[in-house]
């Protein structure tokens, strides 16, 4: 027994688990010992982490480079607004409805959008998002360009929103981690390496891609609801804005595309730059744009990918043992 505990793989596993528990407990107790401002920064970090994980799942693992993920943020935010403002129903319902509507909308648009390949898919998703932005600006049911003040959100404290954000951020990591170790994950990796070979061996390309697209839509929709809980004001041009996807792209590229740790690190990096340059929004975008271009040119695998290549470690391995 002692020998087993002292054996090398078990030790590493032990240390990993202890560190993981330590980190999680730090985040869970954060509201007890830090300021309101720090908490609100961490709300953003966790929510953007979830967005980054989902974009990474699409672009990094499935090869679906979508520039239309803001569709689901807008739908999630608007579901929350309509449910809580127009019908005076509870917030939790609004957020869940946001996720469900996102998944339904993703299912509807998947029919035409999956006929497009590569660059066509990328721009096609963007056109859908622009369509929604224009449509919501003229749709009187959601008050057109006026938008909503999400009054219900004022009743929540930052701590409440923080715990929801933590659940969302850590939940998305766990989801991607376990998803990639299932049969879908194996199929995705086979597809990434050689699409036609995978198809020959019985991987259903369309079904696998669709499943991933729907999962990403659902989680992005939920995260969108939570984001608008902390923003508390929704308006079509901002909610369906490409800026959301810009953030996801930067988080994933800078952190490391095709790794689970990448978006975690990327989200920290992104929010810190954003907060540091809060008073100069234009400059922060220029810096992020330049950093992203340089990352692709110099270290195309991002921070985490480059470190992994050099030192050969993996914190969250998705390999099957």
């Amino acid at each position: 027994m002692i020998q087993l505990l002292a054996s090398k793989p078990f030790k590493i596993l032990n240390i990993k688990i202890i560190v993981l528990i330590l980190i999680i407990s730090i985040f869970l107790t954060l509201p007890l010992w830090s300021s309101e401002y720090i908490i609100s920064v961490f709300v953003l970090i966790f929510l953007y982490m979830s967005l980054g994980q989902m974009w990474n799942l699409l672009a990094g693992y499935t090869g679906l480079v979508s520039l239309g993920q803001q569709i689901f943020i807008g739908l999630g935010g608007y579901s929350l607004a309509v449910i809580t403002v127009l019908y005076q129903l509870p917030i939790a319902l609004g957020i869940i409805v946001g996720g469900v509507i996102s998944i339904l909308f993703a299912l509807i648009i998947s029919q035409p959008i999956f006929k497009m390949r590569g660059d066509y898919f990328t721009i096609g998703t963007w056109i859908v998002a622009e369509c929604l932005a224009v449509f919501f600006s003229v749709w009187t049911y959601v008050r057109g360009g006026l938008g909503f003040n999400i009054i219900a959100a004022y009743k929540l404290s930052t701590t409440d929103i923080y715990y929801m954000a933590v659940a969302m951020g850590l939940g998305s990591i766990a989801l991607v981690y376990f998803l990639l170790r299932t049969k879908i994950g194996l199929a995705l990796m086979a597809m990434r390496d050689n699409e036609s070979a995978a198809e020959t061996l019985g991987v259903e390309l369309y079904k696998t891609k669709l499943k991933v697209f729907l999962i990403a839509a659902f989680v992005t929709g939920l995260t969108g609801g939570l984001l608008y809980l902390s923003i508390a004001y929704i308006q079509p041009r901002a909610s369906f804005s490409i800026t959301w996807t810009v953030a996801m792209v930067f988080i994933v590229i800078i952190g490391g595309i095709g790794t689970i740790e990448g978006p975690i690190l990327g989200a920290f990096f992104f929010i810190l730059i954003k907060q540091y340059l809060y008073n100069y929004p234009g400059i922060s975008m220029i810096i992020l744009g330049t950093v992203a271009i340089l990352t692709i040119l110099i270290a195309p695998k991002g921070i985490v990918g480059t470190l992994q290549e050099r030192y050969g470690f993996e914190i969250l391995s998705i390999r099957r043992r």
Binding site: V65, L67, D119, T122, V246, V249, I253, M285, I286, L288, G289, T290, A292, I293, I296, L297, P300
Partner: peptide
């Protein structure tokens, strides 16, 4: 990569 580089140029 080319798609993302031009995207970065666009934002900048």
């Amino acid at each position: 990569p080319p798609l993302l580089v031009t995207f970065g140029i666009s934002i900048t």
